[in-house]
Simulated assay, not measured.
Amino acid sequence: MTTAPGQAPVAPPVPRHPLDPDPVRSTKARAVFALGLMAVLTGLFVGGVVPATLALHLSRQARREAYASGGFLTGAAWLRRGERLAWAGLVLVAVSVVAAVVIGVVRLAEAPYGQDFAPHMD
């Protein structure tokens, strides 16, 4: 059955089996998003490593569970957003660590080397 000559055929909806569960959002997807948000917010203070790694680990588990559920677990958009936020948090941590190392090296290079004697001493 088609609706117009240029459109794709419309398939009738497939009836659901009465014992099929209702599609629900994965609770892990919400947790991944929250942990990713915390990773971004605390990323510059190096505290973002912990929530970011937890978010990435939890997102892997949530993806496996969603695949095994056969489409009855939703929340893939929340998972994607949470993963992106977690990776952004890790990038912020890396930037802050690199900046701290560069500042430390520059300050170490500016410090006097060895003992500093008075100008009239040999």
Rank of each mutant, 00 (worst) to 15 (best):
A52D: 01
W78Q: 12
V101N: 10
A111P: 00
A88R: 12
V95R: 06
L44H: 13
Y67G: 05
L56W: 08
D116T: 13
V97R: 10
R107I: 02
Q115M: 04
L54F: 11
R80N: 13
L54D: 09
V97K: 03
R60T: 11
G48I: 13
V105S: 04
G104K: 03
T53A: 02
A86M: 04
L108A: 14
P112T: 08
A109S: 14
L90R: 07
T74D: 10
A76L: 07
R107H: 06
Y113F: 07
V46T: 13
L90W: 03
S69W: 04
Y67W: 04
F72E: 10
V50A: 12
S96Y: 03
A68L: 13
V91K: 04
T53V: 05
G104I: 02
G89T: 09
I103F: 09
G75C: 12
R84M: 07
A62L: 02
F45I: 03
G104N: 13
E65P: 07
L58G: 04
W78M: 05
P51Q: 01
F45K: 15
R84W: 01
G82I: 07
L73V: 01
H57G: 15
A109H: 12
L79N: 02
L79A: 10
A109E: 08
W87D: 02
T42N: 15
G71K: 06
R63G: 01
G75E: 08
A99G: 08
G71D: 08
A88W: 01
V50K: 12
S69D: 12
A55Y: 04
A76I: 08
G47R: 08
A99M: 02
L58K: 10
R64S: 13
F45E: 15
T74F: 00
Q115H: 13
E83I: 01
H57I: 00
V93W: 04
A55S: 05
I103T: 06
L44E: 15
L90T: 00
V98P: 00
V95E: 03
L79V: 08
S96C: 13
A52G: 04
V46H: 10
V49A: 13
H57A: 09
A62P: 03
A109T: 06
V46F: 12
Y113C: 01
A68Q: 14
T42H: 15
F45C: 02
G104W: 11
L92V: 03
R81T: 12
G82K: 12
A52H: 04
F72I: 06
V93L: 03
V91H: 04
V50D: 14
V101Q: 13
A55Q: 01
R63K: 11
Q61S: 07
L92R: 12
L79H: 09
Q115R: 14
V50C: 02
A100W: 06
V93I: 02
V97Y: 11
G89P: 11
V98C: 11
A88P: 01
R63C: 01
L92G: 11
A99R: 06
H57E: 10
R63D: 12
A62Y: 01
V46S: 13
